[in-house]
């Protein structure tokens, strides 16, 4: 059971870690300095969630692994994040589309995970749910302004949404969660979250005068370690220094 619990926490942790890494790329590149601060906060929150989840996942393994062992010394094929978060940064419209999708999904997830029978996950979720509510509000504010701003922003926002939307389905694919963990009240079956997610996001898009994209879902595979070239590039950058000095303390 521990294996599956560890794997579950690892998947959630990888989502947060890779999302934090991409969000962090916006620091010093955002459209307004106030936005550098806001995106910095969001990246820090996601990183904090990643650290808690990875630390927990690693502690359940035998032999144990630390958060850094997991972050820096696994190859792409061992990562369990969804493909949405590893996509390249894109423009600000794509970033806000992704932010809205991710924060809405995480909001649904953590809200349910707060009552997990696993104390550690429940505790992590209780803190995270407040953070992602803020992220969701932030993304919503921008999606509204970009969608219902100028003609140019509307086009760009729609394009960003269309580019990210094929990666939404994978968030709700429950095949990676052990059903026994769900039955035991430890883990959440994400397929049950799709409806409320669609309702919330649909509401924002409608207000923002944006169309729900009618695009084909992309091939998944992230939860099984089948990743795109983008993750390999991201990891090469992220892990390079640590791997050059194995065993060193920083």
């Amino acid at each position: 059971m521990n294996d599956h619990l560890s794997g579950y926490a690892l998947a959630l942790g990888d989502d947060a870690l890779v999302a934090a890494q991409r969000t962090g790329e916006w620091i010093a590149s955002a459209p307004q300095i106030e936005e550098d601060v806001a995106l910095g906060n969001i990246a820090l929150d996601l990183l904090g969630q990643a650290r808690s989840l990875l630390t927990y996942a690693g502690s359940l393994e035998a032999p144990q692994r630390s958060e850094d062992d997991l972050a820096y010394f696994r190859d792409a094929a061992e990562f369990r994040n969804v493909l949405l978060v590893e996509r390249p940064r894109g423009d600000f419209g794509a970033a806000m589309a992704r932010a809205l999708v991710l924060a809405t999904y995480l909001g649904e997830l953590y809200e349910r995970l707060r009552t997990s029978t696993d104390e550690m996950l429940a505790g992590i979720a209780a803190k995270a749910v407040k953070e992602v509510a803020y992220h969701r509000d932030h993304a919503t504010m921008w999606v509204l302004r970009l969608g219902d701003g100028t003609e140019e922003s509307h086009a760009r926002m729609q394009a960003g949404l269309d580019a990210e939307w094929p990666y939404v389905d994978e968030l709700f694919d429950s095949s990676y969660v052990d059903p026994r963990l769900v039955d035991a009240g430890v883990a959440i079956d994400p397929s049950g979250m799709r409806e409320p997610f669609d309702a919330r996001v649909g509401d924002v898009l409608a207000q923002a005068t944006l169309q729900l994209p009618a695009v084909r879902a992309a091939e998944g595979g992230g939860r099984e370690g089948r990743h795109t070239e983008h993750l390999r590039e991201l990891l090469a950058d992220m892990q390079g220094l640590a791997r050059a000095h194995p065993g060193a303390t920083w």
Binding site: V37, G40, M238, A242
Partner: peptide
């Protein structure tokens, strides 16, 4: 993006974010 530990990454993100705030 390249910080060699997650703790250092978090510290550096916070520091750089502070600098934006100081500019403001």
């Amino acid at each position: 993006s390249r910080a060699p530990s997650l703790r250092r990454k978090a510290i550096l993100m916070a520091k750089v974010q502070d600098e934006a705030g100081h500019g403001l």
